[in-house]
């Protein structure tokens, strides 16, 4: 199998096939510590599938995903979260029946077992952390509102907050600005730049202006594999990328 690396996340020869269709085939992908990586690519390129594989939602057919040199492909979803991988889904996935506060409390990384959660105490430390996160995701005034009363953009922020409170070393965001207004988009870009300090972030995004605003390094995916990698300008001038994606 693959050897240990200095990368935070090292994916090697990753393949997943759905009834013979290979959504990802022989993919190699590395992310450094403290790196903000944007993954772009046309529809069906396998971007979301890649995140699904890393966070355990989809099981790999072959290959390895190493996070801090620990193999993730055999771990169940919640254990991958415990290792320090957070995932935001494409459509905002928050707990609508709970308040904003409870959404963050449920996401707080203590009391993760059944009995741990029964005897979980909301201490001043927990409360402070929840309020701090709420502040950073612009939701302080809405802490007591049920999450289903939030706007689409606010739900997106809440879900990001639910990940932040777990303080993951790797944060994966699937189209975080989809469906957001211009002002929400600006705030999100600022939020992303803020939260990417001290951790690695993988962002899938379609919006090229937004990508330019946040990206240092871009990976272009096409047909289940990496087509090009580099900074935005290099990638944009790569003729293969222009051919499959940007040119159209």
């Amino acid at each position: 199998m693959s050897t240990n690396t200095n990368f935070l996340l090292a994916i090697e020869d990753l393949t997943v096939s759905f009834d013979g269709f290979k959504a990802i085939e022989g993919l190699n992908f590395y992310v450094d510590s403290n790196e903000l990586r944007v993954v772009i690519g046309p529809n069906g390129a396998g971007k979301t599938t890649l995140l699904d594989l890393i966070c355990g939602k989809t099981k790999a057919t072959d290959g390895s995903i190493k996070f801090k040199n620990k193999e993730l492909t055999k771990l169940p979803e919640h254990r991958i979260v415990w290792e320090g991988v957070g995932r935001k889904f494409q459509t905002p996935s928050v707990y609508e029946a709970l308040t904003v506060y409870e959404n963050l409390e449920v996401s707080y990384p203590k009391g993760k077992s059944v009995f741990g959660s029964l005897f979980f105490k909301n201490t001043a430390e927990v409360d402070g952390k929840i309020r701090e996160i709420a502040e950073s995701i612009f939701l302080t005034d809405l802490l007591d509102r049920p999450a289903d009363e939030l706007s689409h953009g606010q739900k997106q922020w809440l879900e990001i907050g639910m990940l932040l409170i777990q303080d993951p070393e790797l944060l994966m965001l699937d189209e975080p600005v989809a469906g957001m207004s211009v002002s929400e988009r600006e705030k999100t870009a600022e939020l992303l730049n803020r939260i990417s300090k001290g951790r690695s972030v993988i962002v899938i995004e379609h919006d090229m202006d937004f990508v330019k605003e946040i990206a240092s390094k871009v990976t272009v995916m096409h047909q289940g594999n990496v087509l090009a990698e580099g900074d935005m300008e290099t990638v944009q001038s790569d003729p293969r990328v222009i051919e499959v994606y940007l040119g159209h």
């Binding site: 928050v94 029946a97 709970l98 449920v106 993760k112 959660s117 029964l118 979980f120």
Partner: peptide, 25 residues
């Protein structure tokens, strides 16, 4: 009334999501 109760409600509505909040559903 405990955190367990919130988790229970959360998993009823979004079982797929609560795994990624780190719970063994």
């Amino acid at each position: 009334s405990t955190k367990y109760g919130s988790i229970l409600t959360a998993l009823r509505d979004r079982e797929d999501r609560i795994r990624f909040s780190g719970y063994n559903v």
